[in-house]
Computed example of a mutant assay.
Amino acid sequence: MNFLVDENLSPRVAELLAKAGHDAVHVRDLKATSAPDSTIMALAAADARVIISADTDFGALLAYARAKEPSVVLVREIVELRPPDMANVILGHLDVLEPHLRAGAIATFTATGIRVRALPLR
């Protein structure tokens, strides 16, 4: 899968996802540090990337626009994990999440599991 890791997460997460065989970049790699969320969404959509972020604003922006892309993986509740552990959690669930993310979804990691909502949000 193609990922865009938001600036509120370590660039190491992108490195680890790339090492696992995915096309993963950090916003820093795209010179988009401090860019508005709408710009991050446009960059992700243009390259068919899934945003990985701890920022819940992406869900609000997607709902407001009734957008079908980009997909977002929210890691707010597991943000305290070290980058290798976070990458492992994401990678460990991709077999289940990938079809949803390819179709357009927001996947939220919680302390007790994962919640997936299809896009567009209603």
Rank of each mutant, 00 (worst) to 15 (best):
S10H: 01
S10F: 05
S10T: 00
R12E: 11
V13Y: 09
V13W: 14
V13T: 03
A14C: 04
E15Y: 05
E15S: 13
L16I: 06
L16P: 07
L16G: 03
L16N: 04
L17Q: 09
L17R: 02
L17H: 07
A18C: 07
K19T: 14
K19Y: 10
A20S: 07
A20K: 03
A20N: 03
D23I: 02
A24W: 09
A24G: 07
A24Y: 09
A24Q: 03
V25M: 10
V25E: 11
H26F: 08
V27Y: 06
V27R: 00
D29M: 04
D29A: 10
D29T: 02
L30F: 14
K31A: 13
K31W: 12
T33W: 07
T33D: 08
T33E: 09
S34P: 05
S34V: 02
S34G: 01
S34F: 01
S34N: 05
S34D: 06
A35M: 01
A35L: 06
P36I: 04
D37Y: 01
D37L: 01
D37V: 04
D37K: 03
S38R: 14
I40C: 01
M41V: 02
A42R: 11
L43D: 01
L43K: 00
A44Q: 03
A44G: 00
A44K: 03
A44T: 03
A45W: 10
A46D: 15
A46T: 10
D47Q: 13
A48R: 13
A48M: 04
A48G: 07
R49P: 06
R49F: 08
V50R: 01
S53C: 06
D55Y: 01
D55A: 02
D55W: 01
T56N: 10
T56V: 11
D57W: 06
D57G: 13
D57R: 08
D57P: 05
F58N: 03
F58R: 00
G59C: 14
A60R: 15
L61P: 12
L61Y: 13
L61V: 12
L62Q: 07
A63G: 15
A63T: 13
Y64G: 10
A65C: 00
A65K: 10
R66Q: 15
A67D: 10
K68P: 09
K68Y: 13
E69G: 11
E69N: 09
P70D: 07
S71E: 05
V72T: 10
V72Y: 07
V72Q: 13
V72M: 10
L74W: 01
L74F: 15
V79M: 09
V79A: 13
E80A: 04
L81P: 00
R82N: 11
P83G: 14
P83A: 14
D85G: 09
D85Y: 09
M86H: 04
M86L: 15
A87I: 00
N88H: 08
I90N: 15
I90K: 14
I90H: 11
L91F: 15
G92H: 11
G92I: 00
H93R: 15
H93E: 12
H93F: 11
L94T: 06
L94R: 04
